Simulated scan of single mutants.
Amino acid sequence: MAEQATTEATTALATEATPATGTAPGTPAAEPAPMFRLAGVDKVYTQKSRTVHALQKVDLTIPAGQLVAIQGSTGGGKSTLLQMLGALDRPTTGTVTLAGQEISTLGDRDLARIRARDIGFVFQHYNLIPTLTAQENVEMGLAPLDVPAEERVSRAAAALASVGLADRASHLPGELSGGQQQRVAIARALAKRPKVLLADEPTGNLDEATRDDIIGLLEGLWKAGLTIILVTHDSAVARRAERRLRIHAGRVTEAA
């Protein structure tokens, strides 16, 4: 019964995060905008006297509602690609579009607003504040959105319930297992009801059983309608994605 309740809460939360696409009767349905579209994206860095082509001619479309895994060797461009998708960086050339809005030319303030409102982030190192409870950590994720205090409390509680941690809301991170801490981090991302969840090695610090537990949670969110893009070195994790991409020397290809 507890597992069923968690699944129902997860589905409800993810559904809230997914915009409605219905049209009036008799109105032809418009082609929905993809969640991401990258066109001709290059990213070039200069390190001392060396030029680094972190991304090269990336053309990529990710429809809304996909679970996408990105793999590749260290230094191949995975982190740079995730930064582009997460509005954390701009391309040297090319365009990046999120849900129909071009974000590659926006200023810092607009990009910060998009990160706060539309994108949920989950990292390998949970990034929880050790002196705050699970509930308070999740509430902190809503601070940039100016959500009223009462609503912050209710949304954080709902997010924790959706990841199966309603009974751990008052616990500090040091009182939680690694898997539970990652669930809190996922709840923090979900509480703002993002359009997309970006996860960077979300199971990198976890044992095999806990890894499978966290991926099962992410799969549940995806099946409820949330777009999820994750970077992973773990092929067992990548195989559970709907779509797999590989990036090597800055070039993105579809994996078999």
Rank of each mutant, 00 (worst) to 15 (best):
L128K: 08
P148C: 09
G204C: 02
L198Y: 15
H125K: 14
F121V: 13
H171M: 07
R168L: 01
R113K: 15
D118S: 13
V231K: 04
D207K: 14
N127R: 14
V122I: 13
N205Y: 01
S170T: 10
Q135V: 08
T210V: 14
F121I: 12
K192G: 00
R117L: 09
R193K: 15
V138N: 08
N137D: 08
G179Q: 04
I119E: 11
E139W: 07
E175Q: 14
L142A: 11
L217S: 05
A191H: 04
L160I: 01
I229L: 15
N127I: 03
A187C: 08
D167C: 00
P148N: 11
D110G: 03
W222S: 11
T133W: 12
N127L: 10
R113P: 03
N137L: 10
A161W: 00
S177T: 09
E139M: 15
A161Y: 02
G174W: 12
P148H: 13
Y126C: 08
L218N: 06
A134W: 07
R155A: 12
A134C: 03
V231Q: 02
I186E: 09
F123R: 13
S235E: 15
G225H: 03
L218Q: 05
S162H: 11
Q135I: 12
G179L: 08
H125F: 15
E151H: 08
T133P: 03
L111F: 12
A185H: 01
S154E: 14
V147M: 13
T131E: 09
W222Q: 14
G164R: 06
E201L: 01
D234P: 02
L221T: 05
T227P: 00
G179R: 10
L197M: 11
R117Q: 15
L217W: 05
T131D: 12
A191T: 07
F123A: 12
N127E: 11
A158R: 14
A159E: 04
F123G: 13
G220L: 06
L111G: 12
G204D: 04
W222D: 12
P173Y: 13
G174A: 13
E150C: 04
S154R: 12
L165E: 04
Q124I: 04
D213Q: 14
M140N: 07
I114D: 12
L230V: 01
H171F: 01
L190R: 07
I129R: 06
V163S: 10
A169F: 01
H233L: 05
L160C: 05
T210D: 10
A199V: 08
D200H: 01
F121Y: 15
E139C: 02
A159I: 03
L172P: 03
L132S: 05
T227A: 01
A156L: 00
L172F: 13
G179F: 01
G120V: 04
A161V: 04
H171I: 03
P144G: 09
I228A: 00
L176Y: 06
K195C: 05
L218C: 04
L172R: 08
T227G: 00
T131L: 04
V122T: 05
D200P: 03
R168T: 00
